[in-house]
Amino acid sequence: MRSNKVGWLLLTPTLLLLGVFGILPFIYVLFLSFHQWNPFGASPDRIFIWGNNFRRLVFDGEFLLSIWVTLKFAFFAVFSEIVIGYLLAQLFMREFPGRAVFRTIHTLPLIVAPIVVGSVWRLMTTPSIGIIPYYANQLFGIDINIGRDAGTAFMFTVIMDIWHWTPLVTLTLLAALLSLPKEPFEQAQIDGASRAQIFWHITLPMIRPAILATVFIRLMDALRTVDEVWMLTGGGPGAATRYIGLHIWKVVFPKTDYGYGSAISVIVLYLTLVMCWMLYVGLVAPRNKGN
């Protein structure tokens, strides 16, 4: 090994950059969350107020609502993506002509900018322009208006997320399925196991780590969805699709109530970390059981 000084020297810019732009903002936001500070408010000075911001936050109905809709959105979106993604991955397991081409097409949405995804779906669903409301009305007589009906707006944010991210799930689960050994399946078929039995007792336990890893990645992303939803619904109607990132950006941030905004940011970070950590434990704990 050569002198470690060179090693540290090579590492310094990275550590410096991540320190200044990664750690410092975190410490700063934590510091501010215990202060009252609104430069354009009645008392523009920064005052230390202990946990009062947090005391205010637990009674903030708008904030709690946005947490709730975010969780609902993340649950529906990730759950549907896993189910659909698994089914599509199973379809890809079979040999058929043009498989590579279909797979390429299927990967396409992943690379589209979230903001463009939002605008695409807005053009699809806006009444009088979009094709979905038009045909829903013509064929089934259903009136779709995402600007007015909260349930529909929510549903379309979920559909949009499914369109955007299911390919990722499909391809991760496909990779997991392809890496499985063949023997257990052949043996089970010889023993006359039904397809449901094979799925619950062989496939599912074997690809469990892959599923959990995918859920982990997807959930982290779904919880911080902002761009697409902003373009599609603008958080509306009312606050029905104002997910937490959007709430911070569009409601908390413009109020210039920096202390309280920091407290909200800290709690959102806390909630994300807790979920992240619980999933991580769920991922790692089964592996350590053998020890």
């Binding site: 590492l11 990275t14 550590l15 991540l18 990664g22 410092l24 903002p25 975190f26 700063y28 936001v29 501010l32 982290m220 919880l223 911080r224 902002v226 937490i244 990132g245 959007l246 911070i248 950006w249 908390v252 941030f253 920096y258 905004g261 920091s262 940011s265 800290v266 959102v268 970070l269 994300t272 992240c276």
Partner: peptide, 23 residues
């Protein structure tokens, strides 16, 4: 160090809007 750099990416961007803006 390796792991710490990764956790930097996991955080939602919205959380850092305010501190970044003020900084």
């Amino acid at each position: 160090i390796f792991f710490w750099t990764i956790t930097n990416r996991m955080a939602p961007a919205a959380v850092f809007l305010l501190p970044f803006f003020l900084l």
